[in-house]
Amino acid sequence: MRAVKILERVLVTIPIVLGVAILVFLFIRLTPGDPVDIMMGQGGAVSEGEMEQLRKEFHLDEPLPVQLWLFLKDAVRGDLGYSYVLKRPVTQLISERLPATIELALGSLVISLLIAFPIGIISAVRQNSAVDRLSMAGAFLGISMPSFWLGIILILLFSVQLKWLPVQGRIGFDAQLQNITGYFVLDSLLSGNRIAFWSSLRHLILPSLTLGAPVAAVVARVLRSSMLETLRSDYVTLARSKGASEWIVVLKHALRNALIPTVTVVGLQVGILLGGNMIVEEVFGWPGLGRMVVSAIFDRDFPLIQGTVMIYAFTFVMANLIVDVMYTYLNPKIEL
């Protein structure tokens, strides 16, 4: 039953993603800037004829509805077209870059949860203590600090001053990692390459921290306030009256119920992990989707922009689906 419902929800994502694709398709064509102009502007002396030739090749001379039709016809078959600038299939470009972005997003998710959970729980249990006030001040900072600034500060401190962690990239040059899945941490485990494993982990830390800081801050605050509520509830008193220790009361009875609102917020934050990574990837020279889509936007590389945004939309919808499924496990009153 549950499996059927999950499948249903997965199928529903297809029209959502296509809808997003159509919107993006229209928006990038309605904003000023002509891809051929930009390409040729860099090339120097180009004849009018050659430009016409290119426009024809990209179907940019057709009316908008025809262009849209051509795009959708290919897209539903999984063909997202050719990048104007890089002259390679968009699907190929995306699949090369996607693992880096997902690795970074997962890294930040893990780091932010590792930070947020202890802080959220301790702040709630010791409400108004020094720990609580300090953490909440820190959380406020975490939310309000721009990520490029935090990234640079972290690089200056940990890479330049202390020389603990690398500045740029995903892995050291000496690691000699053989590419299997594109996820470097996973690949080094699969190939048993210890040097590559530590190197890729070390490269992951600072960008993950930068990207995860605002997420950690938001999650810590939500967790704290929902823990404050569940710690006051009658069922916590019941657990105490049964003779449960403070550990069991807090980590089992109170936390379990506080997770319900927290999971929703974590799901929403996945969007930030995806969207925020353009800046972080730029700061840390991380070869992911974010950097690629930024340069694609500057180049007016329509197929590449469309393809990447569709992937973003898909990931976002999927993250929400995962949250909804987890929600039904956490809250027995809700069905999918």
């Binding site: 069922y235 008193t237 009256s241 049964k242």
Partner: peptide
Amino acid sequence: SSAMRQVRGKEISMIFQDPQTTLNPAF
């Protein structure tokens, strides 16, 4: 506190006014 926990639920136990909010909804 640990000796007190031995008493709670084993020697002296309690039932509450509002059963609906007293049972933990997640278990």
